[in-house]
Design a protein around this nucleic acid. Structure first.
Lengths: 338, 338
DNA sequence: ATGAAAGCGCTAACAC
DNA sequence: GTGTTAGCGCTTTCAT
């Protein structure tokens, strides 16, 4: 089972190796007739170029890196989107990982960068906003696309999402239902989505002439447990909220769990809304009302941006308008009790 | 930013390229003194061997493949374990994917195999039991480790888990609580875990002199929706079960959702048990009683097995005893109502 | 529009 | 123990 090489294809098509290479790389200066002959030969031989040979000889590696820090449904869907885009373009997806908490983050990054052989790296929050990571990548000139970053750095491409507008919309959904005391569970500080979603929340209230009661705004960490804790605090207030908007689904599930645990009915006694539309959001009862974030599509766009920009001089530019989110109303939200 | 090569290191250390290669690959026949000189030079130059050159020239690629078919919490945790093991060994993890439903699965596989440049592939169910996939891999002599496979194929390594014993244990848990009419939601046919878990269930009943009522055994697909549907059927029976063991957590969550939707209390009116202990199992209320499967550790073992076996003649052999599962009792199970 | 030759950075097979 | 010589399969010049 010796694998088929480019010369095998060349022989079969009766052309030179270089012509096959031209066809495969969609380079110009090949007669249509020849091109087809080559493609047919390649197909018949089930030829697949060898990534290592290509990356050794040429400028591109046909590999994309996906940087993982913590596992989460969000990261998982993003990885899947990236994988899909890679496959479509004949690329491979390499999963890299880095521990942002590590003491020796800078030397870890240097090692990672050094051993890296990818045409670009896809970065998610919170990694995409870590200055040490970005410095290391930038000084090694690794092409990067950051998905929904918080910081405004003139390096690499960015994929944006309408976080603020979405948070505003879901807050309006609660307001429309008649809620006036709405609790908010924030994400971690420094995480881009946190501040944008909080801003959207405030704007929605302001638009109705309301102001957020500071005691209804709680700090979370985008984890289930932190949502649970925040809910505990909110529900213990003298005047508890009738609805809670947790700025991601994991925390929203924590809020739901805490409320149910305390014997409250959802949505009878408390409405809960989340953000992201992770799989679990539709696997709990009642289903979680949330904003569906097109994270997989965003990752596809990120991968495509890197692939398109590889080899070209100008690094991946933004240009793309922010992705929109979609309100998904399930059973966890309803009008407050009279 | 020209990268430093093995010859640079050789020059600096005053030896030949080959000697550097020997040192870096921990081959024998190098004087300790020389070895240290080389290592120092490499360190000073921040030398990192280029993966593509290594894999093109040599037998190993320093890359492991992880085959993804469907995204699931199970697959995600496995990928993470594999990634961890890779990093520890200086390997990279490449995510490959294949669509088992595709009409042209065989030619897809052939293409995949052809473009593959990994030292081995980690396979999960159901991919690890697909004959077309396995044939393609075997004929290309791709080293493989199958995690919890159903089929007994004398090819590649296997990582086993005590599925049957675990299913038996969780069924005993329900029996001990006093349940006698226990519903079972099976996994898809042909999936290794399905039959083993069903067998464990039957054995537990048999050990108490009970026999499974055929109408209490339902077919599922290891998906949330299929669990919901099975629950609908079970709860509509003239004599419905007082407890349901769904053979994975996704289906168990579906069972819970359906029961709650029908106004039943959990565990008051129905106990529910699952299998896997995915993240969501502890994020619903009440928490799901389940068997924790050490999938990440299993993937670590799989990756390590491949890495250890690379380059050696005998392909990765089993030897490793099956991994054990652990019963995690949460709120979804309780004695039946009097 | 097509082809020939020269490497990319490393390991393998032999020398010595 | 250490060095030399060939390639691995492809992309890049540079010819034609």
């Amino acid at each position: 089972m010796t694998s088929v090489t480019i010369t095998d294809v060349a022989h079969r098509a009766g052309v030179s190796m270089k012509t096959v290479s031209r066809v495969l790389n969609a380079e110009p200066h090949v007669r249509e007739q020849v091109r087809e002959k080559v493609l047919r030969a390649a197909r018949e031989l089930r030829y697949r170029p060898k990534v290592s040979a290509r990356s050794l000889a040429g400028a591109r590696s046909y590999q994309l890196g996906f940087m993982l820090y913590q596992v989460s449904p969000y990261a998982m869907h993003a990885a899947l989107g990236a994988l899909k885009a890679c496959r479509a373009a004949g690329y491979h997806l390499i999963v890299e990982s880095i521990d942002l908490q590590a003491e020796e983050l800078d030397s870890d990054m240097e090692a990672l960068v050094n051993g890296l052989s990818v045409d670009g790296l896809i970065l998610l929050a919170p990694v995409c906003d870590n200055p040490i990571v970005l410095d290391a990548l930038e000084s090694a000139a690794v092409p990067v696309v950051r998905i929904a970053p918080a910081t405004q750095r003139p390096y690499g491409g960015r994929i944006e999402v309408e976080d603020e507008a979405a948070a505003l919309a879901i807050t309006e959904h609660l307001l429309d239902l008649g809620h006036r005391r709405i609790g908010l569970v924030q994400g971690p500080r420094g995480h881009g989505a946190s501040s944008r979603r909080l801003a959207g929340f405030r704007k929605a209230l302001a638009a109705r002439g309301l102001e957020a009661d500071p005691e209804l705004i709680r700090q979370g960490l985008f984890t289930f447990e932190s949502g649970r804790e925040a809910a505990g605090a909110l529900l213990a207030l003298r005047s508890p909220p009738t609805a809670v908007f947790a700025t991601n689904d994991l925390m929203a599930l924590g809020v739901m769990a805490k409320a149910l645990e305390l014997g409250l009915g959802i949505p009878r006694d408390l409405s809960v809304a989340g953000f992201d539309d992770i799989a679990s959001a539709s696997m709990v009862w009642p289903g979680l009302t949330t904003m569906r974030q097109p994270i997989a599509e965003m990752a596809v766009a990120a991968a495509e941006a890197i692939i398109a920009a590889t080899g070209k001089d100008p690094p991946p530019q933004a240009a793309r308008p922010p992705f929109a989110c979609e309100l998904v109303v399930r059973g966890s939200t309803a009008p407050p009790r009279a």
